[in-house]
Design a protein around this nucleic acid. Structure first.
Lengths: 264, 264
DNA sequence: CAAGGTGTTCCGCTCAACGGAATTCAGGTT
DNA sequence: AACCTGAATTCCGTTGAGCGGAACACCTTG
């Protein structure tokens, strides 16, 4: 089972409560591991049974939910698979990285992740499981903290300069006691990443877990995302082997080239 | 660019127009290739500008949309990536098939697709691109016709018997003049698939395109989905090579085993 | 600097959508 | 077979969430 490395989804509110409800219902269905009954759903969302039922019916006609033929329970529908894929495609870095992920996994035996830099967030778009008995990984769709993850450090080092301001504006969350929380310390770490062209973040989010990331740049030299290896500290040490470093950076370089990036 | 093999999404209506609107807006954003302005969106959906704006704001707070910092345009947000992934995970066949897709692609050089049998639909969950210059494929999230695709024939042959009734209840759509449209013909084709353990569907959906599919079965011997190769008829002939057949069927068998299936 | 295009906010009105109650259905249990 | 129990579903009269026209602020562009 993959270790969860994602930051908690921020609960939010707005007017337009009806829209809010649609999203809460979608998320409830997506999180459920089995079909849910109307009553159950109504209770979970704090709404009346007729309301839940009406909404579910509206979900059904567009395939955002499906109804189990035997039990009558409701579960998440296939429309979301298509929609999620469309959303993912839009972040076109993934197309550039994908072809290099498989070989990277074969060569290292470790989990491989690809992330994109969207606004001032690092979003994990794809993951291939490693080959060890105990699996690590980050789920696609997770957002990674800029100061605590290897993906994030790469983004800070090679992404737009205002990223750093956005991060230091808020206090840095200490996921573990190894997480960088001091802005000065972070500046130095990022400078080092910029110099060496890759980042690690041993114990940054989860003790015992390390990642090794390298930036994917586009034709203008802007950082569009990153490729990373993820593994236990024993297989992916804080000082990674030359081989590991070279494999990751050359995968990232290859992906960058297919985005039109050219060295110097 | 991948050839589109998907059946057209059925437009649908229900009461609860507010829910409908949320979905139409999501789909519009997902389909767009660039950020859209409020006015543009309002026009496309046939609603007033304030309404569009209010809805978009509600989308923003939950990350179902994001606003481009420079232009102020709206585009699809990261929440959908996570949601789509969750939806996909739920169809657990994919976890069983995934590990065998990469090697299959390496061995054949063709595109590899994985599908699940959800209710009486075949849903494409994952695709790896082939290695030829011209790419074929089916987008994840697409639904395939049972009578016209290799995935579908496998589902008919190894899935629940009532599937066939569901299919023959409606007239069979002729995608090309090679598509099987006669129920009797379909019965015989399915019987053949059941005997040989794999299916092809040359020109079934698109002239010049063929697929070779084999079933993935669970611990009870029920068909849960399929793995398939997709390619041009010249690289994947109507009568596939022994090598191709063996590669696909053994990948499917391996996936079946990991779902608990045991031979005999 | 007016003219025409954006995005955004305000506010009074209205009908879409709500919830309580009634109804139907499925599956036990006596 | 009759009776229950707890589920899903439908009905319908009521009402406030959310609508749209109008106003506003902010850009370009001629």
């Amino acid at each position: 089972m993959p270790v969860e490395l994602l930051s908690a989804p921020a609960p939010a509110s707005s007017d337009l409560e009806s829209v809010e409800l649609v999203f809460r219902l979608l998320e409830l269905l997506a999180a459920a591991h089995q079909p849910l009954g109307v009553t159950e759903i109504a209770r979970a969302l704090g709404i009346s049974k007729p309301r839940a039922h009406r909404h579910l019916r509206a979900f059904l006609v567009r395939d955002y939910a499906r109804q189990d033929a035997r039990t009558g329970g409701y579960e998440i529908g296939s429309a979301l698979v298509a929609l999620g894929e469309r959303a993912r495609e839009r972040f076109d870095v993934i197309a550039a990285i994908r072809p290099h992920m498989g070989p990277l996994r074969e060569a290292t035996g470790l989990a491989v992740t690809a992330s994109a830099l969207i606004g001032d967030e690092v979003l994990v778009l794809e993951m291939l499981q490693g080959m060890s008995i105990i699996e690590f990984g980050v789920r696609p769709g997770s957002r990674l903290d800029l100061h605590a993850s290897a993906h994030g450090l790469v983004a800070l080092a090679f992404g737009p300069p205002q990223l750093m301001d956005a991060v230091t504006a808020r206090p840095l969350k200490a996921w573990t006691d190894q997480t960088i929380v001091d802005p000065g310390h972070l500046e130095r770490a990022v400078a080092a990443v910029r110099r060496q062209g890759w980042a690690t973040a041993a114990d940054g989010v989860q003790v015992g877990v390390n990642a090794l990331a390298a930036p994917v740049l586009d034709h203008r030299g802007l950082c569009r995302g990153a490729v990373a290896l993820v593994g236990a500290c024993q297989s992916l040490p804080a000082q990674p082997s030359d081989e590991q470093r070279i494999l990751v950076t050359s995968a990232a370089t290859a992906a960058s080239r297919s985005l039109g990036w050219r060295p110097e």
